[in-house]
Structures are given as structure tokens and as C-alpha cells.
Computed example of a mutant assay.
Amino acid sequence: MLANADHVMPDELKFEGDKQFFSAALDRADLIVHGRHSQEDQPNSPRRSRIIVTRTVDAVARDPSNPKGTLWNPAGATFEAACHQAGFDSGTIAIIGGPDVFGMFMDRYHTFWLSQAPRVRLPGGEPCFPGVPRQSPQEILAAHGLRAGEAQILEPANGVSVTPWRRAV
């Protein structure tokens, strides 16, 4: 789960090591993609170019509330059209969720970083991917051709880790 039953990431799911890993990864990205309810709140957030997946536009439009933002409705335009509108033609893209956004890119990921906090339970929470909990996140990633690499421990005291899932080349 990536959020509780109210679709909010609770404090018990926030770990300093994971936040640092996430922030550093976003600093390396050239473009951020997320749904309208997902967000990132780091000091560099306002400087990041982003595509926000939403149904509030017909196809692609500038975000009137964010000069570095592009609004994209996948039902009305391709991802490539959204990238063009955002002024992005090559580089690293970070997909930061939510579950439907993660699901849209399953067959396009080069690497998906799966963070886990095994001691946190969020009954009735929002799953990280469509298909969870019927299948585990690992089963879903594997079904889309990704293979687990070596996990990094981010918070030893809490068992928090991140595992790269990479597409075989």
C-alpha cells in the first residue's frame, strides 16, 4: 500500500532514509510524471518540470497554476505529445504515482524502484499498483518483464528497503 484508506500517505509510512532516496532520485530526473493527487514536497520541487495526469483537460495543456507543469489526459493525447508540450525530448523520467499512473507505464519502465516498509500495515489502503492485493507488487513487476536487483536497506531499524526492478535488455 502507498496510502491509507483515505488516500493519504500517513506519517507511519514516512521514513527519513526513503525520503532522502526519493528526493535524490527526483533531483537526477529531467521530468516528473504523477497523478493530480500525488505530490512531492522537497525544496527543489518548484524547479522540476512535470506532467500531471488528469481528466480536467481534453488532451494536453499548460498547467495554469505551475509554469513548469503540463496537464495531460491520456484519453486525448499520447504520452509523447505531453512530453512535447512539456519541452521534453530526452533524458530521465521519474514516474511517482499514484497507482493508475504507475500502471500506465508498466511496460515502459527501464527501472522501477520498489520501496518496502514491512512493519507498516494499512488495512484497506490504496495499493501501489492496479491488481494489488490480488497479486503482490513483485508478481506484477515480474509479469511485466522486470527483474529484481539487490535491495538497499534505507532504514535498518524499521526494515525499510528499496529494490531496483529492471527490464532485461
Rank of each mutant, 00 (worst) to 15 (best):
A24H: 13
H37Q: 13
F102G: 01
S45W: 09
A75M: 11
G98M: 01
D89A: 11
A117E: 13
T111Y: 09
H34N: 02
G103S: 09
A77I: 07
M1P: 12
M106D: 06
P43T: 04
L31Q: 10
K68F: 09
G159M: 09
D41A: 10
A142G: 02
W165M: 04
A29C: 11
H37C: 14
G17S: 11
F79E: 06
P64M: 01
S23N: 09
V132P: 00
S23W: 11
E139M: 11
E155P: 04
D18F: 09
V33K: 02
L146H: 03
L26Q: 15
D11L: 09
Q152H: 14
P156N: 12
V53F: 02
A75G: 10
A81P: 11
N4G: 05
F129K: 14
E150A: 14
R48S: 11
S115M: 10
L31W: 12
G125N: 01
V60N: 07
A77C: 07
P10S: 05
G35N: 08
A148F: 10
G97Y: 11
V57K: 02
Q42N: 07
H144Q: 05
P118Y: 08
P64V: 01
R121E: 15
I51W: 03
A29K: 12
D107H: 12
K68E: 09
L13H: 10
L114D: 04
H84F: 04
E16Q: 14
D58N: 09
V60K: 02
G124A: 08
T54L: 02
P133S: 00
H110C: 00
Q42M: 04
D41T: 13
R108G: 01
D18C: 01
A3K: 13
F129G: 06
F112I: 03
P74I: 03
V162S: 01
W72E: 00
V120T: 10
S23Y: 14
R166A: 02
G17F: 14
E80S: 09
A151K: 15
G131E: 00
G87I: 14
C128W: 11
H144E: 07
P74D: 00
R147N: 03
N4R: 06
V162F: 09
A5G: 12
A151T: 15
M104D: 14
F112D: 00
G124E: 02
T54D: 05
T92Q: 06
V132H: 11
M1E: 03
P130R: 04
Q42E: 06
A82R: 03
G145T: 04
W113K: 04
I153W: 11
F129S: 14
N4C: 08
E80A: 12
S38C: 08
G149H: 15
A142I: 08
D100K: 14
I52R: 13
